[in-house]
């Protein structure tokens, strides 16, 4: 028999996880650089626009971005699994649209209508999942295809995009957007709940671990016995059902459905997810990061609004601030090239 391997005591190269204090400071600065830039903007707006720090305005920001947050969380999940979902706009539309149809044309209760909306979203996700898992189309093209088809379906049934109003909406359904739970606006409560759910799912559960593994190196996940297809199906359906909820909230607020309106959330949610991922040491999409991303977008747009700038100038500034903030926060952190090993 052989002797046991030498103990690690005789290895002078043994690892020390604690490195210098200065290094850690640099590390955390680069990690939280974006958060610092974010707070700099909060301070700036607080000084330049008196109304900005009013509690009611802060609640406004949260409420106004609840829908985006829900969509961005769903996007986080899909991106973590290694894909992307360009059809979230469709799931948003379908959620609200079918909920309204369920109530208006079939007289269903608000709860059933909610369920119908979520199922409509899930149906969109099912199509995505089938395309990705069965037909092996890349998520990017698959969801782009779903987007084209879904847009077309909406145009066909709304004669090219006519609105679908429903003024007699029940109060209970309305309260999904306008109500409050313990004094907190329902939208915020819903977004918070979804956020918590996603946090547990993605960052604390075994399923999240597996989804991350699939996203990072699919073949390894597969060889390790993880049911890759099953998880991908889950991811696409769950994400689409989640964004359908934002669609439902939107229609509840407006008492009508506007076809093709979900598209406007696509780029913002992608931006939020990737801002969040940039803050992660391994550049992984993560729930907390996405939240920061959404809040940043929301704060900048709200702040510029309060400053009473010209409409067109405001749009320009929003973009320029985004570029500047990213550049400011992430320049000089240890660069990509340095991390690549062979």
């Amino acid at each position: 028999m052989t002797s046991t391997p030498p103990s690690s005591a005789d290895t002078p190269t043994a690892v020390t996880t604690r490195s210098g204090w200065g290094r850690r400071l640099v590390d955390s600065l680069s990690r939280y650089g974006f958060v610092i830039v974010f707070f700099a903007f909060v301070v700036f707006f607080a000084v330049r626009a008196d109304a900005f720090l009013n509690p009611s305005n802060l609640v406004n920001i949260l409420e106004g971005n609840a829908v985006l947050l829900i969509a961005a969380l769903a996007m986080t999940l899909v991106v973590a699994s290694g894909g992307i979902d360009l059809s979230i706009g469709i799931a948003i539309d379908f959620g609200g649209w079918f909920a309204i149809i369920a109530m208006r044309d079939y007289n269903l209760t608000w709860a059933s209508a909610l369920l119908v909306g979520l199922l409509a979203g899930a149906a969109v996700g099912t199509l995505n999942a089938a395309l990705v898992v069965r037909l092996k189309i890349s998520p990017f093209l698959a969801t782009l295809g779903t987007f084209f088809i879904g847009s077309s379906v909406q145009q066909i049934y709304t004669s090219g995009g006519g609105q679908v109003p429903f003024r007699e909406m029940s109060e209970s359904f309305r309260s999904l957007s306008t109500g409050a739970v313990l004094g907190i606006p329902t939208e915020i409560v819903l977004a918070g709940t979804v956020g918590l759910l996603y946090f547990v799912l993605l960052e604390r559960s075994v399923h999240g671990k597996r989804i991350h593994a699939i996203g990072l190196q699919r073949s390894v996940a597969s060889v390790s016995g993880i049911r890759v297809s099953g998880y991908l199906v889950f991811v696409f359906i769950f994400a689409s059902a989640t964004v359908a909820l934002s669609g439902i909230i939107l229609t509840a607020g407006l008492r009508q459905f506007t076809p093709l309106s979900g598209f406007s959330y696509l780029l913002d949610s992608i931006a939020a997810v990737f801002i969040g991922a940039s803050m992660h040491p391994q550049r992984r999409p993560n729930v907390a990061g996405t939240l920061v991303g959404v809040l940043f977008l929301g704060v900048v747009s709200n702040g510029l609004n309060l400053m009473g700038l010209d409409f067109n100038l405001r749009d320009a500034l929003e973009g320029i601030i985004l570029v500047g903030a990213l550049a400011l926060a992430f320049t000089n952190r240890n660069n990509r090239a340095a991390e690549v090993s062979i």
Binding site: D315, A316, L317, V323, L326
Partner: peptide, 22 residues
Amino acid sequence: VGLTPLLATLASWVAVIGTTKW
């Protein structure tokens, strides 16, 4: 800066569209 191309060009998309409008 080291941003992923998707995020970088998305940000410049927003900035350029806004600037054009302005």
